[in-house]
Amino acid sequence: MGQIITQVDAFTNTPFAGNPAAVCVLLAPQSDRWMQNVAQEMNLSETAFLIKQDDGFNLRWFTPTVEVPLCGHATLASAHVLWSEAHLLPDEIARFYTKSGVLIAKRQVNWIELDFPVNHSQATVAPEELGQALGVECKSVFQNSLGYLVEVESEDLVRQMQPNFQQLKMLPVSNVLVTSLTDSNSEYDFVSRFFAPGFGINEDPVTGAAHCCLAPFWRDRLGKDEFLAYQASSRGGVVKVRYTGGDRVFLAGQAVTVLRGELITNKQ
Score class of each variant (00 low, 15 high):
M1N: 13
I4C: 13
I4G: 05
A10R: 11
A10D: 09
N13G: 15
N13M: 06
P15G: 12
A17F: 05
A22F: 11
A28C: 03
S31N: 06
D32R: 11
W34E: 09
M35P: 09
N37A: 13
N37P: 04
V38Q: 13
I51H: 10
K52C: 03
K52S: 14
D54L: 03
F57P: 00
R60H: 06
W61H: 02
F62N: 04
P64C: 08
T65N: 09
T65Y: 10
E67C: 05
P69R: 00
H73W: 13
L82I: 07
H87V: 00
I93E: 15
A94Y: 02
R95T: 12
R95E: 07
G101I: 00
N110G: 02
L114C: 08
P117T: 01
P117A: 02
S121D: 07
Q122V: 10
A123H: 14
T124M: 12
P127T: 08
E128N: 14
E129Q: 15
C138A: 14
K139L: 15
F142C: 08
S145H: 14
L149G: 04
E153K: 11
E155G: 07
D156E: 04
F165I: 13
L171W: 03
P172E: 07
S174C: 13
V178F: 04
L181P: 02
D183F: 07
D183L: 13
Y188Q: 09
F190E: 13
F190T: 09
V191S: 11
I201R: 08
N202R: 05
V206C: 06
V206S: 03
A209P: 01
A215G: 07
P216I: 00
D220C: 10
L222V: 07
D225M: 14
E226M: 11
L228Q: 09
A229S: 15
Y230Q: 12
R235Q: 01
G236I: 03
G236Q: 04
V241T: 11
V241Q: 12
R242K: 15
Y243S: 06
V249Q: 05
F250R: 11
A252P: 02
G253W: 04
A255V: 03
A255D: 11
V258N: 11
L259F: 15
R260H: 14
G261M: 06
L263I: 14
T265Y: 06
T265C: 03
N266H: 14
K267W: 10
